[in-house]
Amino acid sequence: MDITLISKSFQTNTNGLGSYSKNLHESIKNNRNLNIRQISQNNTLIKLGQPATLFFSFVEIPLKMRNSDIYHALSPMESFYLDPKKSVVTILDFIPLFENTEETDKFKNFTKFFYEKAVKKSIKFEKIITISEETSNDLKSHYNVDDEKIHSIRLAIDRKYHPKNIKNDIFTIGTVSGLGSRKRIDILIKSFLDADIENSRLLIGGKGHMLDELKKLANNDPRILFLGFISDEDMVDFYNSLDVFVFPTIMEGYGMPIVEAMACGKPVITLEDAYIPHDIKKRTHISSKNNLANVLKEKNFDCDIKSNLKFSKEFSLENMGYDLIKVYEEML
């Protein structure tokens, strides 16, 4: 079976789509019945932001297309030139349609426009893969997609995530994400400063356009450390260095850092107004924005660490690959 996987990136150092695409490929690459080809933006001529996305979608993909039994667009933006009868699409979420336009990116409105067009094109595909029941329900309710076309398949996390039982001499709070407005790292910084916990520190991993603004908010407090991009090799040690992981985002397709932190045996805090799939959010300590400082100060997190550790094992490459291949086989 010839499978063509199409994604902007198969690298984890780009964004959530890059991590998803890399793990999807990892989950099926050793199947002897599959001949897998990748089309990606990794070697594109245009490297920066939304212009590169549009160039890839409308110029590179049609130039790189070859005959295949099945085409798998790993987001709707890769769907424009695919034959619906031979294609499957993954729809991770509808965040591009709902998040606020960033003033730093004048192409964001173009992306929203084309993403909507891409969704309407891709829902005609033979199969649709989602990563949460929430996205599946949105497809049924807002786009009238038949339930039988939709397959909800859990994401996978790397096998390397596991508890190391590191003992801290200092109470360590941490987060990792892109430093954009949707992630709401400013709420965490303000809450940490308000809590003013003795012998504590806040570790912030990630990069993004709000970095300077967040550093200004931190006001050179030596307890707040901006770590920049954290490599794959260092992520396990990062999670294990924490006493609690805080994910203050307003909206996520799923929220894989939550699962990774759970796989390392850490309690996780989310905010009550966050739109995060219920099956993962219910396993976190849910706090209001106004009460986050008190939650951090009290250090009493309502999380079942043992149950969450078991739950995280459901996000395996083996499970993901098995479910994907079943979808592919149904298309032939």
Rank of each mutant, 00 (worst) to 15 (best):
I3F: 02
I6N: 08
K8G: 11
S9K: 10
S9H: 14
F10V: 00
G16H: 03
Y20N: 09
Y20Q: 07
K22T: 12
K22F: 15
L24C: 02
K29M: 06
N30I: 02
N30E: 14
N33V: 02
L34P: 01
I39H: 09
Q41P: 07
Q41G: 15
N42G: 05
L45K: 15
I46Q: 11
I46E: 11
K47T: 14
G49Y: 06
P51V: 03
E60L: 11
P62F: 11
K64R: 13
K64S: 09
M65T: 07
D69C: 01
D69N: 14
D69I: 02
P76K: 08
S79K: 05
S79M: 03
K86N: 11
K86W: 11
V89M: 07
T90L: 04
F94D: 06
F94C: 05
P96Q: 15
P96V: 13
F98H: 15
F98N: 15
F98V: 12
N100F: 14
E103W: 12
T104K: 13
D105G: 02
D105E: 11
K108P: 00
K108S: 08
N109T: 10
F110P: 01
K112I: 05
F113V: 00
Y115H: 10
E116N: 12
A118G: 04
V119R: 03
K120N: 15
K120T: 05
F125D: 06
K127C: 05
I128E: 07
D146E: 15
D147F: 08
E148G: 02
K149E: 15
S152G: 03
I157G: 00
I157V: 06
D158R: 08
K160N: 11
N165V: 03
N168S: 01
D169E: 11
F171C: 00
T172L: 00
V176F: 14
L179W: 05
S181E: 14
R182T: 13
R182L: 11
R184M: 06
R184V: 05
R184G: 05
L193A: 01
L193V: 06
D194C: 01
E198Y: 13
I204M: 08
G205T: 03
G208T: 04
H209L: 02
D212F: 11
E213P: 04
L214V: 04
N219F: 15
D221L: 07
P222G: 03
R223K: 13
E233R: 12
V236A: 01
D237H: 02
F238N: 08
Y239L: 08
N240I: 03
F247E: 09
M251L: 09
E252G: 06
M256S: 01
V259Y: 09
G265E: 10
P267W: 10
I269V: 11
D273L: 06
D273T: 13
D273C: 04
K282C: 13
T284W: 03
S287T: 09
S288V: 04
S288K: 11
N290R: 12
L292D: 05
L296F: 10
I305Q: 10
K306N: 15
N308A: 05
N308H: 05
K310D: 10
S312F: 04
E314M: 13
F315K: 06
F315T: 08
M320N: 09
G321N: 07
G321A: 02
G321K: 02
Y322D: 15
K326L: 10
K326G: 07
V327I: 10
V327Q: 10
Y328A: 10
Y328M: 09
E329L: 13
E329H: 14
E330P: 02
E330I: 03
